[in-house]
Design a protein around this nucleic acid. Structure first.
Length: 444
RNA sequence: GGCCCCAUCGUCUAACGGCUAGGACAGCGCCCUUUCACGGCGUAAAUCGGGGUUCGAUUCCCCGUGGGGUCACCA
């Protein structure tokens, strides 16, 4: 029997990360077992379902690298549900009931209810073992608003039956729904698939993940802030699952290889943004410099300089949003000459050695002057460090007395890459101009 | 509240009766660097409580406590 799983989002909201993780696990399980995946849009709630949400979910799934073999939409299967409903009624397992409408008791409607045998239902959960439920308190629950308007539980069971779903992998919040779906299966003569219920994703306060209290919950938000799909998939996989060894970084094909339901956790997992960022940074660093710029949507006034900035961004940014910010902020000095402030230039000047910044910059200017274009940071360091280590500097303020004004003259930023890297990227010519400029400011 | 599920460092987790309870992220410290970041090294930090079973329990059983889910003519 070939494995067949399903990805059944309801297009009543944006693409939620919980939906993404459930989809991922269904995808991984199916692919690992050489099985198939069905995408099913659960849009039976006409009032709340929207095409734009469905589009966003599909697009987001593709962005994550998750694909499927079959596609269906519940809103297009009304005739089939009606047929199944009629079969259940004919078999004496369901009946039409005339009763006051729930929202408006003055109106009378005909709903379809399942004739509930009220038995104890036991099913084997692949993650948790046997689970039993008393179905008596469910009473004769409603399975359709009318013959032409099947409700979620009924539609799901018919769909899984028709599609030949073998494994239902879904969130823990469905555990108590399982018994009623099994009752429906029995009413329409459908086989029972295997079930696996995943732990829920909780927020930092261990409550159900929601937009309130600050956590971003839609995949699109993470995409927008510059999280890589590789990073999100990797992190999502680790939430509630582990490979059984100490590996942490997995690309999607590696996950397909390593995944198993035995490694799925039973208890809820708290969303940890810091860990997500850390995992994402790993995948950002794994990109080639060209891909880093392209996939990060990075731009800067000078493309050559941007290329040189990539290694710096790789060590600093954990998202592409951060990278973009850095190009505007602490790395902006790579693209435009700064205007250093006089008092900051003098910040590390010892009291007993006034004028040190000036003399240091003057001798640095000469030292840099002799360097070739394209000088490496190491070579720049070799040229500059002797000055910083010079006896006078050591006594009056140490290397900082020389290196601080240099770095600040070049960057105009209190935080920036080290001066050697800056000289290497800017080149000796531009470095010299910036030093001259700083000297002018000191003099002025 | 009824029913159901769950319980190891702050967080994600490993140890499927038996070494000093391991790793990662975050934290802290030191080194590198007189900026920031990276990196290196190190450190602190957990088996919810009480009973059993056993030579021995993180691990098995029971009770308690705590957390979560679910009880729609939503999905």
């Amino acid at each position: 029997m070939t494995v067949k799983t399903r990805i059944p989002p309801s297009p009543t909201g944006r693409f939620h990360i919980g939906t993404a993780r459930t989809a991922l696990f269904n995808y991984l399980f199916a692919r690992q077992n050489g099985g198939k995946v069905v995408f099913r849009s659960e849009d039976t709630d006409r009032a709340r379902s929207k095409k734009e949400f469905e589009d966003e979910i599909i697009e987001g799934l593709h962005w994550l690298g998750i694909d499927w073999d079959e596609f269906s939409r519940q809103s297009e299967r009304g005739a089939r549900y009606r047929e199944a409903l009629e079969t259940a009624i004919a078999g004496g397992h369901a009946y039409v009931s005339r009763e006051p409408a729930k929202d408006d008791p003055s109106r009378e409607v005909e709903v379809v209810r399942l004739k509930n045998p009220g038995r104890e239902v036991v099913f084997e959960d692949l993650v948790r073992g046997p689970i039993n439920t008393h179905t008596g308190d469910l009473a004769d629950f409603v399975i359709a608003r009318s013959l032409d308007d099947a409700l979620y539980h009924f539609a799901v069971v018919v769909d899984d039956f028709d599609a030949g779903i073998t494994h239902v992998i879904r969130g823990e919040d469905h555990i108590s729904n399982t018994a009623r779906q099994i009752l429906i299966q029995e009413a329409i003569g459908a086989p029972r698939p295997a079930y696996a219920h995943l732990p829920l994703i909780l927020d930092a306060k261990r409550a159900k993940l929601s937009k309130r209290n600050g956590t971003a919950v839609s995949v699109g938000d993470y995409r927008d802030e510059g999280i890589l799909p590789e990073g999100l998939v990797n992190y999502l996989a680790l939430l509630g699952w582990n490979p059984g060894d100490e590996r942490e970084y997995f690309a999607l094909p590696e996950l397909v290889e390593a995944f198993s339901l035995e490694g799925v956790q039973k208890s809820g997992a708290a969303w940890d943004r810091e860990k997500l960022l850390s995992v994402n940074q790993h995948w950002m660093r794994a990109l080639s410099d060209e891909d880093f710029v392209r996939r990060g949507g990075l731009s800067a006034p000078d493309e050559a300089r941007l290329a040189q900035a990539v290694p710096l961004l790789k060590e600093r940014a954990r998202t592409f949003g951060e990278a973009r910010q850095m190009l505007e902020g602490e790395l902006s000095c790579l693209f435009a000459a700064p205007t250093p402030a006089r008092e900051t230039l003098l910040a590390k000047e010892p009291k007993e050695g006034p004028g040190l910044a000036k003399t240091a910059l003057e001798s640095l200017q000469k030292a840099i002057n002799g360097l070739p274009e394209g000088v490496s940071p190491e070579a720049a360091k070799e040229a500059v460090m002797p000055l910083a280590d010079a006896e006078e500097a050591k006594q009056k303020g140490g290397r900082g007395a020389v290196l601080w004004p240099l770095r600040y003259a070049l960057s105009g930023q209190e935080r920036s890459p080290d001066p050697f890297t800056l000289i290497s990227i800017l080149g000796p010519k531009e470095s010299e101009i910036r030093i001259k400029n700083a000297l002018a400011i000191l003099a002025g």
